[in-house]
Amino acid sequence: MTEMMLDIRNLKVSIPTDRGLLNAVRGVDLQIAKGETLCLVGESGCGKSLTATSIMGLLPRYAKVTSDRFEMVGQDLTTKTDAKLAKLRGRDVAMIFQDPTSALNPTLTIGRQLTEGVMRHEKLSRSEAEARAIEMLDRVGIANPAARLTQYPHGFSGGQRQRIMIASALMGRPKLLIADEPTTALDVTIQSQILTLLGELQADLGLSLLLITHDLGVVAAIANDVAVMYAGRIAERAPVAGLFAAPRHPYTKGLLAAIPVPGVTPRGSELPAIPGRVPGLIGALRGCAFRDRCAIAGAECAHDPVPRISAAQGQFIECVKAGEVTA
């Protein structure tokens, strides 16, 4: 049995709004094994970022979060307390965000921002913490790290700032790293450098990585396993090769077909777009959330609950018509 770094069952996040309760995450199951990279992919508003933020316990108090099981790096957090989570954050679990420019404080030196967490959590002295900061900056490819500790974020390029964010996340020697769109704000040449770095770190340090993205190119490049999210639920989970070679959920199929691929999609041809739009998530939603946009939907798709068809190693797909999809 592989060791699970993250095991969440039936995670639900609801947010009260003027128009009623917004059920943004509607029962998500996520398991990540030690050393595994899971990509959580989906379109805006599908709940992928909320899932990540709720794992970190960073949601505002008015958000209602429930789950049947919540285990992280070997600790049961089902009845989690803020104090318990705060201990994990910045040590065993760390998170990096999309925009390094807004995640770094422009008025503090890099050294101060990197060392703050470990000095508090691990009670390291300033010099010990600085030594580790230098080690981590070096690890993420910042040249001459000792001299750069005294510099402010504006002295670094966008790609370097994201490297600093990663170094900062590594300071507590985490076992699980959550990255929310870590390369979306970066240029493509920088993007592949950062993804390469994440891959190396993962292999060297045995990190488990939960990477959230909307970019299927990123998924293909870095994931072991993929979870495709739609309207607050995971529609399909599969190993990366299988998902791209033979997607089974109609939504996954639609997504993959909608991307033009140079050299494959005939130039100027009409792309098979998914018609319609994502359903509103305020109030109750019955049956399959994708059925209004699905080409093969039938009357049975309106029934609750949508059956889950499981296969080996945690793979599954939630679709009552799954048999017909593969045909």
């Binding site: 040449t189 293909a220 490049a221 993959l256």
Partner: peptide, 24 residues
């Protein structure tokens, strides 16, 4: 470099090797 850095939805393609210097 730009063409090589474009990630395709193909797991076989993997991550392109970057020969760009660290300079921005």
């Amino acid at each position: 470099v730009l063409l090589a850095a474009t990630l395709l939805p193909d797991p076989q393609a993997g991550l392109p090797e970057q020969k760009l210097g660290a300079a921005a």
